[in-house]
Amino acid sequence: MFGQGLIKGLSITLKNMFGPKITEEYPEQRPNLPPAFKGSFDLKVPKCIACGLCANACPNKVIKIESEKDENNKKKLTGYTMKTERCLYCGFCVETCPTKALLWNHNFELAKYFRDDVNLDLFSSYVPSPEDEKPAKPEETD
């Protein structure tokens, strides 16, 4: 009979009207992010050995590493900038990092007022923490 489907549709919408709602009231209610979530980047500066693998892995040449050799002829990081405006958020840099110095964090609110503020300077914005001071152990070298 014509109209059966219409009535069924009305009953479905009425049922859902009083059913549970799925809205996430965002600023108060934070999303439940999985561990693998790709937000922004964290760099544990003491762990970084300035090997440059991340910069090489990057498809868009986002990462710029500056380093100098110290007295032991060991590379020491002096600058780490990411032009995040070009970043694909693919995660190849984090994946290739041999010392797990570059990590994802869960900060997804990346909107900024000025274009330059988007880019990250991970070296100078680093906040030292005692956990990072453990000696870096390279898993493998290339």
């Binding site: 009425l14 859902n16 059913g19």
Partner: peptide, 10 residues
């Protein structure tokens, strides 16, 4: 509001 409730929103 009604549209939102029907559409399982708030």
């Amino acid at each position: 509001r009604v549209a939102a409730f029907i559409q399982i929103r708030k």
